[in-house]
Amino acid sequence: LIGRYMQKRETLLHIAEFLFRRKHYDEATKLYAELTDGKGSTDTTLLQKWGFSLQQQGRYEEALAAYTRAELIDTENEWLLRRMAHCYRLLHRPAEAADIFTQLFERHPDEAALLLQKGNALVEDGQYNEALKSFFQYEFSVEDAAKARRPIAWCLFLTGQYERACDYYGMILDSDSNLTFTDRLNAGHTALAMGRIAEAIDHYQIGQKLTPGGKTEFLAAYTADMPALLAAQVDETTIRLIPEVLRLHPL
């Protein structure tokens, strides 16, 4: 008797909404899949909630597919665009995320945070010069551009602009009270690329003291950055000798 009523669309909508509001996304997903009726649904609200439920479960490909269907109908929906950009980044498709952040910034030129998001996506895509343009635009747009200093410094290093990178790392080390070991690590890389080996070692030694996991964690991070140092044309022998110096040097 109850089954007949439970299968009515209006009842399913109420149940799905109940589950969605209480964050039971797994169960809500199943109902939204049924309610969107395959690929023919034009109810953007249902498609958005279906996509969000999928995204909350880490099912980003499926979430993106649901969002894309909704966006084809509701092309001006900025909530959808932001969710799609997030999914693209999680799916390691940063160039598509950067395109969305460009669209959003064209609509909201006063929302400077979009420039940071676009720049970060471009860094993930390896477009360091384009990322710099976005970060510099952010820096020019806000009074306090501290959030852009780290990505700017790293992109300058990756694009071979070591003097400018050194200047930015200097600002970070002088003004930021929340320094991390990666700040010293990257400042060391910049000094090493400039041939300032003693200065680089000083940065690395201080960086070890800031590393929660001590020398082991710091050296693992250094090793992971070896390809970047080789790309900066640092002598391979020097790159491999640095960890030995750090292992022998007392903290």
Results as ranks from 00 to 15, higher is better:
100 I>Q: 07
99 D>K: 12
98 A>I: 04
118 K>M: 15
96 E>G: 05
101 F>L: 10
105 F>A: 06
136 F>P: 02
132 L>R: 07
82 R>L: 10
91 L>I: 06
86 H>F: 09
104 L>C: 06
118 K>Y: 06
134 S>H: 05
94 P>T: 05
111 E>Y: 11
112 A>E: 03
102 T>W: 08
102 T>N: 10
101 F>I: 10
121 A>E: 01
101 F>P: 03
113 A>K: 11
125 D>K: 15
134 S>R: 07
98 A>D: 02
93 R>F: 02
113 A>I: 08
107 R>L: 12
109 P>C: 15
97 A>P: 02
122 L>Y: 09
120 N>S: 13
114 L>K: 12
127 Q>F: 09
143 E>F: 11
133 K>A: 04
99 D>A: 10
98 A>C: 08
84 M>P: 02
117 Q>D: 08
114 L>V: 10
134 S>L: 03
113 A>P: 00
81 L>F: 05
118 K>R: 15
127 Q>V: 04
142 V>C: 04
86 H>E: 12
134 S>A: 14
108 H>D: 11
123 V>Q: 06
140 F>E: 03
137 Q>H: 08
133 K>P: 01
102 T>C: 09
142 V>H: 05
107 R>K: 15
82 R>H: 10
85 A>K: 05
90 L>Q: 14
83 R>T: 00
139 E>W: 12
101 F>G: 06
137 Q>S: 09
129 N>Q: 00
112 A>I: 05
128 Y>V: 01
99 D>I: 02
109 P>S: 15
136 F>Y: 14
129 N>M: 00
128 Y>I: 01
140 F>V: 03
98 A>R: 05
84 M>H: 08
109 P>A: 15
82 R>Y: 05
